[in-house]
Amino acid sequence: MDESGDVLRVRDLYKEHGHHESLVRAVDGIDLDVPTGQMLAVMGPSGCGKSTLLHLLGGLERPTDGEVWLAGRRIDTISERGLARLRRRAVGFVFQAFHLVEELSAAENVELPVLLAGGSPRAARRRAALLLERFGLADRARHLPWQLSGGQRQRVAIARAVANRPHVLLADEPTGNLDTTATLDVLRVFEDLRAAGQTLVIVTHDERVAATADRLISMRDGMFVDDTRLAGSTTGRLDGLIRLED
């Protein structure tokens, strides 16, 4: 964490794909500060560069230009090995397609990052059991991914992403493949994490997912076009939402 208390700090970020006539500016000059504990949603039409931005934030891709600071450390210049180490502890990824390891059970999937980070098998098992219990999946721990519903799979993926208590959780369309009930389950898990002080950046095109965030950024053609605080600005009262005739 730097002195400003921002987990993520992005300055003048650019990312280009392709060359010459096929050149695409997926991220086109972005500045961003995400304070610790904030839940940030990024919305925008398909192809506007949301996934690319998320990859840049987590060090999965390198920017063409600009700076990315994660927990007080500049990450766009460090080596591939350094990035891998960073991902082990500082970042958790959640994807639309879940990306669970198919041949490992739910618990084993959650244990994986702990083991990769050098944790003991005992510690890994304990952490996995704890998280699965917390996310309402205690009875699914030994199931293989294909034996789980979409919502359960995504909750396992989230448990895996936070297994090493990352500074920030990056989620790319986490509910894109889910129905309403499963979406609500996943949102409850995010809510739980947020209450525990987890910083979250969620890319989504689902308004109801974005609405749970503290802050909403709208993106278009690789740029931010709107940045709204949702938390604190609402009434918290619900009577405005329905009209009851006398």
């Binding site: 949102l187 109801r208 609405a211 749970t212 709204t228 609402t234 009262r237 619900l238």
Partner: peptide
Amino acid sequence: VAAQRRELMRRLRDAQHAALAEPD
């Protein structure tokens, strides 16, 4: 439109939080 959107998002946030608090 943007202003309207912000307003509706805030309402949605209230409704969504209430919905999450409800049991299944």
